[in-house]
C-alpha cells in the first residue's frame, strides 16, 4: 500500500468514529489500528525518498 493510500485509510478510519456507523464494540479495535497505522505512516515518511532521474537526451539538437 502506498503512503498516500495509508493516509487515506487512516483519514477514513478516523472519520468512522464520528460517523453514524460508530459502535462501541468495534471502537477499541479500530482505535488501536489507527494508532498503529499512524506510527507506520510516520516511519514511512521518514524513510521515503524521491527518485530523480536525468533524461538521457540532448535537447540542444
Amino acid at each position: 500500500m502506498s503512503i498516500t493510500d495509508k493516509i487515506t485509510k487512516l483519514n477514513n478510519q478516523v472519520q468512522w468514529f464520528y460517523s453514524d456507523e460508530f459502535n462501541l464494540d468495534e471502537a477499541e479495535k479500530k482505535y488501536k489500528e489507527s494508532v498503529e497505522l499512524a506510527k507506520e505512516i510516520e516511519k514511512d515518511l521518514g524513510e521515503l525518498k524521491n527518485k530523480i532521474e536525468i533524461i538521457n537526451k540532448d535537447f540542444t539538437k
Partner: peptide, 29 residues
C-alpha cells in the same frame, strides 16, 4: 529539489536538462 526532498518523498522526477537563458534556450525547452 531541496525543498521537494525536505517536504515529501516517493515521487519520480524525470528531469529534462535544458538551457534556461540565451537564444537557444526556448527551442530546448
Amino acid at each position: 529539489c531541496k525543498i521537494l526532498n525536505a517536504r515529501w518523498g516517493g515521487l519520480h522526477l524525470r528531469v529534462a536538462n535544458c538551457g534556461v537563458q540565451g537564444l537557444s534556450a526556448a527551442d530546448e525547452m
